[in-house]
Design a binder for these strands. Structure first.
Length: 786
DNA sequence: GACGGACGGCTTTTT
DNA sequence: GCCGTCCGTC
């Protein structure tokens, strides 16, 4: 949701149900003869995508083909031709940023701010809006609060503990991810397949999930998954409500369709049920969020799901040079499950994609640093240079190097503003002030700063709350009137409650920013950080100031709090010239003149865990990630790998990524690394069977101390122990590892160990008594039913 | 109840 | 090698 200045929490009126202008009205007729100016800037396919308004449409928009332009123009077109009022169009995106951008661009197209586009937003923000209107139908009150991941974990911890389960063996975090997974797939507790319910705490998974849902209802709260799942349930159980929204949303637009999960898909299909005017835009080759529930199948199946669908391919790329485009296309062609697109461009050939090998990660960072300084000397702007890594730990090497060089850089997608502890604490104070029944917020700050109300006291309050069925805050009010707590804790708690009472009284009288300052001051929270000696304390104080400042944009406290529970990002300013450093995932949708892609090594990229846990599907997703990386580059793309890398304090020898060998030769130039350590073995004869000798990385007689050490480790097997067993990942892992869980007692077959019986199931790990090989723990994806 | 040492885990991340 | 969580001690 865009940071709108006022959020109406109680807007239950249906002012957007105004009658449609008759088809063939004046506006439409005028359109027929005079060409709308915004149409003339589109290419042919884009124009078809914009003008195919009726029925299901899938726009397959390759990287850099003008996807956002099509989406926004199509929306503008719907409004300009009088097909629909702004309030009759449902337009969903995944991120707040995307929603914000779309709003701005539509404004530019049709002039001025678009009024009444109340159904343009993220899946989640639209879900909340619908849920608040009909909360009582799903067992909530319309002012329900939204839990973030942190609150969710704390709640689950309590539930796990109440079942006398060992937190160590069954971490709440793991349960949370199971529950998220179920919610992503649209599964209510009673629908969780028996096999999967076994995945946690010996079969208690579904039971704990059910209990968690009950607790949420008692707390009058919903987690992120509920915002989608409960909306779906609302539609499924209340046909009249569904029919109302089907009528309301005359046209639907979906961005990044390849990232939708099952609930979102079911949601969309229900809503599009009547008219079927749904337009989904996406790129199956850029689906990189399978691990958090996105289902590429949604886009692959579109034509089946929506019969008569029109599929439009945008294949003309406006971003990258032919070499870059061809390298990326050649790579992605190795994937099997694709709809297939052929990207082309009119740009000049440009430079080939550069591939370069290094001795270790440090040398790689040094070389990239040098490259960037050279580019800078040639007059390139740092803002147009990016380093995209697979995993965030890789960033450190670059940060170290850039600090040494004095090269300005910015890290994108680090810890989010609203996820910082001090911000969450401050928000918890404000929440308790505005919503005394918010138990999780209350618990978070009851003893922060330390005021002598420890775990034992909190536990007493919680017990009372539970037995009496009242919120913690009320329980606290009652308990301080008794002798239940030790005097110190009692007085302290009494004082805190008195403070909250005082602050609450100021809610209506005082501007909310001033009140926030008072709360943070009088609670001793600011003071706590002022007295903190740690080096990051001043930064935290700054963040608190920034928080209060940002509240200014909102009308009142309630509006502000609603905004922050949905919007967890804060836009970093892009004013000064800096190199961007980020993960491949956060680079999606961005573009840069020059892109560096370091760390292309087996085990790191493709990541070993992706292969272990998801087999072939995992490998294909990693390949799409590589594709996303390359297609971010406009003019120059430099891929590199290191032979040796330190991961978790252990030196590991790695092989060049298979993705490097998958790049089509004619679009790649191998560059010798400048360092004296590099240039051994694999650089020699250009392209052979494999460009880089991956069978034996130590096949040359190269002799330096570091090299000898590495070879000794290799020979002794020390690094082999950690070396990726990529062959297994590729050859025997099954694609649908998750779909059919194994049960205890089941007879299975393993490629290496032969036949055996499953004796225990722990998520995707199985303990199997093999007939020949004894008892082993193996991944479920490596066994099959005989 | 608060603090400090030991222990384990460790891809990606939005809402 | 670093960070967050847990448990034991004062």
């Amino acid at each position: 949701m865009a940071p709108s200045k006022s959020i109406d929490l109680g807007d239950f009126d249906d002012d957007d149900d105004a009658p449609l202008p008759a088809r063939g009205g004046i506006a439409a007729r005028a359109m027929g003869t005079a060409e709308a100016p915004y149409l003339s800037t589109l290419n042919e396919e884009q124009r078809v995508a914009v003008e195919s308004l009726d029925g299901p449409v899938l726009v397959l928009a390759g990287a850099g083909t003008g996807k956002t332009r099509v989406l926004t123009t199509r929306l503008a077109h719907l409004l300009a031709t009088g097909r629909a009022w702004p309030g009759q169009v449902l337009a969903v995106t995944f991120t707040n940023k995307a929603a914000r951008e779309m709003k701005e661009r539509i404004g530019l197209l049709i002039g001025g701010v678009v009024e009444g586009m109340q159904w343009l937003g993220t899946f989640h923000s639209i879900g909340v809006k619908i849920l608040r209107r009909h909360a009582e139908l799903v067992g909530l009150k319309s002012d329900f609060s939204i839990l973030d991941t942190d609150d969710q974990i704390r709640l689950l911890k309590q539930i796990v503990a109440a079942h006398d389960l060992d937190e160590k063996r069954w971490p709440a975090r793991q349960l949370a991810s199971h529950i998220d997974g179920w919610k992503n797939r649209g599964l209510l507790p009673e629908k969780v397949p028996a096999g999967e319910a076994h995945a946690f705490a010996n079969g208690k998974g579904a039971e704990l999930y059910a209990e968690y849902q009950e607790r949420l209802k008692i707390l009058n709260a919903a987690d992120f998954g509920d915002l989608l799942l409960e909306t779906l349930r609302l539609f499924q159980e209340n046909p009249d409500v569904l029919a109302d929204y089907q009528r309301r949303f005359k046209y639907m637009l979906v961005d990044e369709y390849q990232d939708t999960n099952v609930v979102q898909y079911l949601w969309l299909r229900l809503l599009a049920g009547g008219h079927g005017n749904i337009c989904c835009v996406g790129d199956d080759d850029q689906s990189i969020y399978g691990w958090r529930g996105a289902d590429v199948d949604n886009i692959l199946r579109f034509e089946k799901d929506f019969p008569g669908a029109k599929v439009i391919r945008l294949e003309r790329n406006y971003r990258s040079t032919p070499h870059i485009l061809s390298a990326a296309s050649g790579l992605i062609a190795n994937n099997e499950g694709r709809l297939g697109k052929t990207l082309h461009t009119d740009l000049d050939k440009g430079e080939q994609v550069v591939v370069r090998g290094h001795w270790d990660g440090e040398e790689e960072a040094r070389a990239i640093g040098d490259d960037i300084e050279a580019l800078q000397r040639e007059g390139h702007v740092l803002n147009e240079i990016a380093i995209l890594v697979r995993a965030s730990f890789q960033m450190r090497e670059f940060e170290d190097r850039f600090i040494t060089l004095g090269l300005p850089y910015r890290v994108i997608g680090g810890p989010r503003f609203y996820e910082r502890a001090e911000i969450r604490d401050a928000l918890a104070y404000l929440k308790v002030t505005a919503q005394p029944d918010n138990d999780l917020a209350f618990e978070r700050i009851v003893n922060v700063p330390k005021r002598g109300i420890g775990d034992t006291s909190v536990k007493r309050v919680r017990e009372l709350a539970r037995t009496r069925g009242i919120p913690l805050y009320r329980a606290a009010q009652e308990i301080v009137e008794t002798e239940e707590l030790p005097a110190k804790a009692r007085n302290s708690l009494k004082g805190l409650l008195e403070s909250f009472r005082r602050w609450r009284a100021l809610l209506d009288g005082l501007p909310h920013t001033e009140l926030a300052e008072i709360v943070l001051d009088e609670s001793g929270y600011t003071e706590m950080w002022q007295n903190d000696k740690s080096p990051d304390a001043p930064g935290r104080l700054d963040n608190l100031k920034e928080l209060v400042r940002s509240m200014d944009e909102f009308e009142n406290m309630a509006g502000f709090l609603e905004h922050v529970s949905l919007v967890m990002d804060s836009d970093a300013l892009q004013s000064d010239d800096k190199v961007s450093l980020m993960t491949l995932h956060s680079a999606k949708g961005l573009e840069f003149d020059t892109v560096f892609l370091p760390g292309w090594e087996e085990g790191l990229f493709p990541h070993q865990r992706a292969l272990d846990e998801s087999g072939r599907a995992g490998l294909e997703e990693e390949r799409r990630l590589a594709y996303v990386g390359i297609t971010r580059a406009k003019r120059l793309c430099k891929i590199s790998f290191a032979q040796n890398r330190r991961i978790h304090a252990m030196w590991q020898t790695a092989l060049p990524s298979r993705f490097i060998d998958e790049l089509p030769e004619s679009h790649v130039a191998v560059e010798e690394a400048a360092s004296p350590h590099a240039g051994f073995g694999w650089g020699r004869g250009g392209f052979g069977e494999s460009r880089f000798d991956r069978a034996n990385p130590f096949s040359t007689g190269y002799e330096t101390p570091g090299w000898k050490r590495a070879r000794a480790a290799y020979d002794s097997g020390e690094s082999v122990r950690h070396a990726p067993h990529f062959i297994e990942g590729e050859l025997v892992a099954r694609e649908d590892a998750e779909a059919t869980p194994f049960q205890r007692g089941e007879r299975v077959f393993h490629m290496k160990f032969g036949y055996g019986t499953v004796s225990a199931v722990d998520g995707n790990k199985l303990t199997i008594d093999f007939e020949k090989a004894g008892t082993k723990r193996v991944l479920a994806s490596f066994v099959e039913r005989p």
